[in-house]
Design a protein around this nucleic acid. Structure first.
Length: 312
DNA sequence: GACGTGACGGTTGAC
DNA sequence: TCGTCAACCGTCACG
């Protein structure tokens, strides 16, 4: 069981097969691209395969979202209670009606569209199994409440399942650990070093520790594939070297004297309030994550603050 | 060398 | 409870 998580790709980056990259890294990929850094350089810096970088950027350009798609699950059922109810109504109104006629009527009446109309065989099955005896009350009787529908649509946003030690425990999906949420805004806890490597300029440090909780469970250090013999301690993991990660803990996010979060801009060599930054695709992405999380965090419960104000 | 693409092995969650 | 299925994932190799 312990030998399940963590593999090292050709670039030395760590990934979990079958699982999406942490949102922080996805965000960083987009962010670097926005800054004009070539995908191949992003790939090397973050130690993410160029195919993945290409995929994430393509998705971002197409959808505007950095988030991975919905993994798992099944297609939405077409035989919803409402559809079954209509089929029963049609059958009651005309006991000799054919399944294909029901299908046509479902379309004609606007109950279904061409994408979700049940097949003739499905209708036949419904007629056989659910409406076989019209004298029997149906579980979907109009006098009853229909069964609860899924809260989320089929293509809901993928919930990053990695445990977050700072997130409230108890619910598996209750709180998205990808980006910390405060009551009215999102912070991107990071420090903005002055060193001029791409990684350091852009503050690629301790992402997994800070913005994703611990990016992969249980702890990256415990990943069997992050082999300490093959992986030098000082070597970067997804562009995050260990020393920097440790340093990030020592030097938390810059805040102003008022406690506002400040972001260091390497371009203008100054800081600016993180939350008053001009709207950008990145801030939009952050807002996207925030809004998704807000919907799923049960009214804001489990809010965390991962940034520690710097005391002078 | 950079990049798009598809195969591949893997995970996930509804049914 | 468990297996199946179809969605997704990132890596890798190829062109």
């Amino acid at each position: 069981l312990e030998q399940t998580y963590g593999e090292v790709n050709q670039l030395g980056g760590v990934f979990v097969n079958g699982r999406p990259l942490p949102n922080a890294i996805r965000l960083r990929i987009v962010e670097l691209a926005q800054l004009g850094i070539r995908p191949c350089d992003i790939s090397r810096q973050l130690r993410v395969s160029h195919g993945c970088v290409s995929k994430i950027l393509a998705r971002y350009n197409e959808t505007g979202s950095i988030l991975p798609g919905a993994i798992g699950g099944s297609k939405p059922r077409v035989t919803t209670p409402n559809v079954v109810k209509h089929i029963r109504d049609y059958k009651q109104g005309d006991p000799g009606i054919f399944a294909w006629e029901i299908r046509d009527r479902l379309l004609a009446d606007g109950v279904c569209d061409k994408y979700n109309v049940p097949s003739v065989s499905s209708i036949s099955r419904i007629l056989r199994n659910k409406i076989g005896n019209l004298s029997q009350p149906s579980p979907y009787d109009s006098t009853k409440q229909p069964p609860p529908q899924p809260t989320l649509p089929y293509n809901h946003i993928y919930q990053y399942p990695y445990p977050n030690p700072m997130a409230s425990s108890g619910t598996k999906m209750g709180h998205h650990p990808g980006v910390p949420v405060t009551a009215g805004h999102v912070s991107i806890p990071r420090s903005w070093p002055s060193a001029h490597s791409v990684s350091n300029i852009l503050g690629i440090r301790a992402f997994m520790e800070q913005t994703e909780g611990s990016a992969y469970p249980p702890k990256m250090e415990d990943w069997p594939s992050v082999n300490r013999t093959a992986f030098h301690p000082a070597q970067a993991v997804n562009g995050i070297d260990k020393a920097a990660m440790e340093a990030d803990i020592k030097y938390p996010q810059v805040t102003s004297s008022t406690g506002d979060f400040l972001r260091f801009c390497c371009r203008c060599n100054s800081t600016f309030p993180l939350f008053s930054a001009p709207a950008s695709p990145i801030s939009r992405v952050v807002k996207e994550i925030e809004s998704k999380r807000s919907l799923e965090s049960n009214g804001g419960r489990g809010l965390i603050s991962v940034s520690t104000p710097v005391t002078p």
